[in-house]
């Protein structure tokens, strides 16, 4: 066998191996780049979050969350711990913050209770910022000794009610313009002693009509 024949054979064998190998998979790919900016850069739907105008006095948003530390009975009070800051801005020498989440503890006794304006949910922005649409959804239904529980969400004098006993229940879209806010009330009926917990997700979008999918 001369040199040329040997090299041709080698190429043929390798090429065949290549073809056979290649037929196993068709390949597609996605390459992604994610850029996360700090809360000082948040605008539009990103600059929405929980706040209490009683906790952060002079905040440039409507009065809401005035009872965030109100007493319920005896020496017991409502306590609110908040999650990360998702939007912040400075006015004068004060930095104001909107929080991503809140965890609220409300000590009550057996019976019916109405907790008014325990926290607010606002949208900070300029007139040029887009309208946002807010959906409240029960991500985790009430577990514990409650026979009835509703979250009432107020915008001005209008309100919608969310049944916290029903997992997945979602409000219709609540429209917020920059500078507007919602007040949150809770109505509950405790049948016996114990601790009740639930989780409500707040979904904010700049695109109308797109409810959060399950």
């Amino acid at each position: 066998m001369d040199r040329r024949a040997l090299s041709l054979l080698l190429v043929a064998v390798v090429a065949l191996a290549g073809v056979v190998n290649a037929t196993v998979f068709a390949y597609r790919w996605i390459q992604g780049t994610v850029n996360i900016s700090g809360p000082g850069y948040a605008t539009g739907a990103a600059c929405t979050g929980f706040y209490s105008s009683a906790d952060q006095s002079d905040i440039d948003l409507p009065s809401a969350g005035t009872n965030y530390n109100a007493p319920t009975y005896g020496t017991n009070t409502i306590t609110v711990t908040h999650g990360d800051t998702v939007c912040q801005w400075t006015a004068g020498s004060t930095t104001y913050r909107l929080y991503e989440s809140i965890e609220v503890t409300i000590p009550v006794t057996v019976g019916s209770w109405y907790i008014q304006d325990f926290y607010g949910f606002g949208y900070k922005g300029d007139a040029s910022d887009p309208t946002v649409y807010v959906y409240f959804r029960v991500d985790q239904a009430v577990s514990g000794p409650l026979s009835e529980a509703y979250l009432r969400i107020w915008k001005g004098t209008d309100s919608v009610r969310l049944d916290l006993m029903s997992h997945g229940a979602t409000t219709s879209a609540i429209t917020l313009l920059p500078g507007e806010a919602l007040r949150l009330d809770l109505s509950l009926d405790a049948s016996s002693e114990g601790t009740a917990t639930f989780k409500v997700g707040v979904y904010v979008t700049q695109e109308s009509g797109e409810a959060p999918s399950p």
Binding site: Q31, N35, I36, S37, P212
Partner: peptide
């Protein structure tokens, strides 16, 4: 065949449907 995806946002939880 392929996609290059760029997401620009701020800290928090986001859902991109």
């Amino acid at each position: 065949e392929s996609l290059r995806l760029y997401v620009d946002t701020t800290a928090g939880v986001w859902v991109y449907p």
